[in-house]
Design a protein around this nucleic acid. Structure first.
Length: 316
RNA sequence: CGCAGGGUAGAGCAGUCUGGUAGCUCGUCGGGCUCAUAACCCGGAGGACGUGGGUUCAAAUCCCACCCCUGCAA
């Protein structure tokens, strides 16, 4: 089977790896152009490019796949199917029409739930206990195509966006293979999404990461879990010191009666507890701006925290 | 040459501007108090102050170069 693979982020790598392992005929790997990134603003290749290069695959990095020349090039390759995962560009109708078996995409949610750029993150932020991976036939919309296969997974309380993303990526790979194998000359069996039940998972913003201590401990911890890849959940302390919350857990606490949300309490065994709108949050690990990740315990010692000190919100 | 912060005892930090024998909160070791303790009291050990050079009677502190770490931005 002649395959063109389109992907950019880490999420796509297990899928590409499986295609290689199963001896699919990979005509080429299409990925986003190198972008300036990291400290120093150097030009860095996307993860898929690195992986593909290491496996001696041809890599193409069009600024836009919809450009006429690139579409012409894709046609010449005569792919049976185009496999898409974490690619980052929309495919125009003219591309969708090229492969006889269609353009098959893996999306890390139970479509039609969580359409959009950040389905994993939003599932965590919303406190879902279950999510999954959906393979679908791409159409012109944003994650609106017909469903081929779907697999559910439980979300663990310890899961963060990075752990869950990793797990779903490894689930997406066999699901894509299965979809491909069920296609013979034409698109694999598929059925339309129930569009009325669609929900959306837009790209996260930095502002979203700022903690509102009025919210419940559960909501705050879910935010921390869902934003760990980016932008992280953060708050402010002292002289506008920005502090990222790396790892925390909701706890019950006896006397949160008249202390306002954001107030810190240090337990006898030096745990860092912060009162929330409902219940309280134990901060296990934090990261002050410009510093390494440290434990709540070290934060207390180094910054001389006292019960009654407060974390606060800051307008940006 | 994208912007910025940092590298001081095992950990987390102060001290650097205004040079003058290194400090805080802990940990650790020993002792004490206690029915007991993560609590309290007393005492001890532990630092080439990132590296190399320079200025100076004297450098963690001022000047120059380099190495490493981190946040922002993308």
């Amino acid at each position: 089977m002649r395959i063109v693979f389109m992907g950019t982020g880490e999420f796509a790598i297990p899928s590409l790896e499986q295609l290689i392992a199963r001896n699919f005929d990979i005509l080429g790997v299409v990925t986003q152009p190198d972008r300036p990134s990291g400290r120093g603003k150097r030009l860095n290749p996307p993860p898929v490019k690195i992986f593909a290069s290491e496996h001696d695959l041809s890599v193409y990095q069009p600024e836009k796949v919809r450009h006429r020349d690139f579409i012409r090039f894709l046609k010449k390759l005569q792919p049976t199917a185009i496999v898409v995962a974490a690619f980052g560009q929309f495919l125009p109708k003219s591309v969708l029409a090229i492969p006889p078996c269609g353009c098959i995409n893996a999306h890390p949610s139970l479509l039609p739930k969580y359409r959009g750029a950040a389905p994993i993150q939003w599932a965590l932020i919303n406190g879902e206990t279950e999510t999954g991976v959906t393979t679908m036939l791409l159409d012109e919309g944003a994650d609106t195509g017909d469903i081929i296969l779907q697999e559910r997974v439980k979300i663990d309380l310890q899961d963060t966006a990075s752990t869950l993303s990793n797990r779903l990526a490894h689930l997406a790979a066999p699901l894509l293979i299965q979809a491909l194998e069920s296609a013979s000359g034409a698109a694999p069996p598929h059925s339309p999404q129930i569009h009325a039940e669609a929900t959306h998972a837009p790209r996260l913003t930095k502002e979203l990461g700022q903690i509102d201590w009025e919210k419940s401990a559960d909501e705050i911890c879910n935010l921390v879990r869902g934003t760990d890849i980016w932008p992280s959940a953060y708050t402010y302390f002292g002289d506008n010191l920005r502090v990222k919350i790396i790892d925390c857990a909701p706890v019950d606490h006896a006397n949160l009666s008249d202390l306002p949300p954001g107030t810190i309490q240090i337990t006898p065994d030096k745990e860092l507890i912060v009162f929330a709108g409902r219940r309280a949050v134990r901060l296990n690990h934090v990261q002050p701006a410009n510093r390494h990740k440290i434990s709540g315990y070290d934060f207390i010692n180094g910054h001389r925290l006292k019960t009654g000190d407060r974390f606060f919100r800051r307008d940006i």
